[in-house]
Amino acid sequence: MQRLLFIMITLAALVSPAMGEKFDPARWEKSIAGLEAKDAKTTPSKNGVVFIGSSSIRKWDLPKYFPGQAVINHGFGGSHLEDSVYYADRLVTPLQPRAVVLYAGDNDVGHGYQPERIKDAFLKFVDKVHAKLPETEILFIAVKPSISRWKLVDQVRATNRLISAECEKSDLLTFIDVDAPMLGEDGKPRAELFQKDGLHMTDAGYQIWTKLVQPEIAK
């Protein structure tokens, strides 16, 4: 019986990111190099706003929603918050932004990461950015409630509570709560805000996010 239990735990560690998957940011190297090449061609303005994180950032048409503003999209789809930490020295600090908008943690929850682990990754991101840019504001968009991951909403909200509490400790950290605005009268995610996969957002979803983010980056 003990041997069977040992085998089960070992197998779980091999397949579960929450328990045993080795953190491997190298899987994003091609995407990161592509973003760097784009920067080299366009030379983003210093003192702008860098958006970084997973596919909800990558799919955000920033020029459309933030016209005439110095916004840079450094999202890379499918990534975890730990990936944004790892690549902050290549995607954030070289641009010397006045503010950073971060959305990550969605895939972390989906892959079984515990809220504490995600919160710790957020703090590492903050430390890494502020080590070189101590006055840069960091805005964290709450992990969104979605149709496809609704069964994980308790973990999503636990993660958001932890990160929100950390943001309250510093004037340079802002927590942008998108939970309530994305819910209908039934208390569940509004269908019109999501694409067919129930995870990625439609223009209607991005309109909500833009309305919440714009006042913060305009300060």
Rank of each mutant, 00 (worst) to 15 (best):
P67R: 14
T136A: 07
L91Q: 03
Y113H: 15
V129S: 06
I138R: 07
E185M: 02
K119C: 15
E137I: 06
H111S: 11
I147A: 10
R58P: 00
E216W: 04
L62T: 03
L162P: 13
P17C: 10
M19S: 05
V109A: 04
I163H: 06
H200F: 07
A99F: 01
D89G: 03
M8E: 08
A33C: 02
R27C: 01
G112F: 03
V153E: 05
L5M: 12
R3D: 07
V143A: 07
G68V: 13
K38A: 10
Q69P: 03
Y87E: 01
K132W: 06
D179R: 08
S170I: 07
L91T: 02
E36M: 14
P145T: 09
E135S: 15
D197E: 10
D203T: 09
A191L: 14
R161T: 15
L14H: 15
E82W: 01
G205L: 10
D108N: 10
F175L: 08
S55A: 01
K46M: 03
V71R: 00
I217P: 13
M182R: 04
K169C: 12
G53Q: 05
Q214Y: 14
G48S: 11
F125C: 00
P17M: 04
F6V: 12
S56I: 00
Q69F: 07
N107E: 08
Q69G: 10
K46V: 14
L81Q: 11
V178E: 00
K169S: 04
L173F: 12
L199P: 02
P97K: 12
V101E: 04
L152C: 02
Y87A: 02
E137Y: 05
R98A: 08
Q2V: 14
P17E: 12
I57W: 00
L14I: 11
P67C: 13
F51N: 04
D83F: 00
G48Q: 04
I147V: 15
Q207F: 13
L152W: 01
D108P: 01
Q96F: 04
S164G: 04
D106L: 05
A26L: 11
F66P: 09
I118H: 00
V50I: 13
L139Q: 05
P63W: 13
Q207L: 15
K38H: 15
Q207T: 13
L183M: 13
G187K: 08
A88C: 04
I141H: 01
A191M: 12
G187I: 10
E166H: 07
W150F: 02
P215L: 14
E192V: 14
S84A: 13
S54Q: 09
A180E: 09
A218V: 11
R157D: 09
W150H: 08
V71W: 04
L212K: 09
L35G: 00
D106H: 06
A142P: 07
R149E: 06
P181C: 09
T10F: 10
D120Q: 11
V49S: 03
L193F: 11
V101H: 02
P215V: 11
L4P: 02
R190A: 14
G34D: 00
F66Q: 08
S45E: 06
S16C: 15
A33R: 03
F175E: 12
Q114K: 14
K30Q: 10
H74F: 03
H80A: 10
A104R: 03
P25K: 01
S164D: 15
S84D: 12
S55M: 06
L35N: 01
R157F: 11
T202R: 11
M182S: 04
G184N: 13
E29Y: 00
E168P: 03
A180W: 08
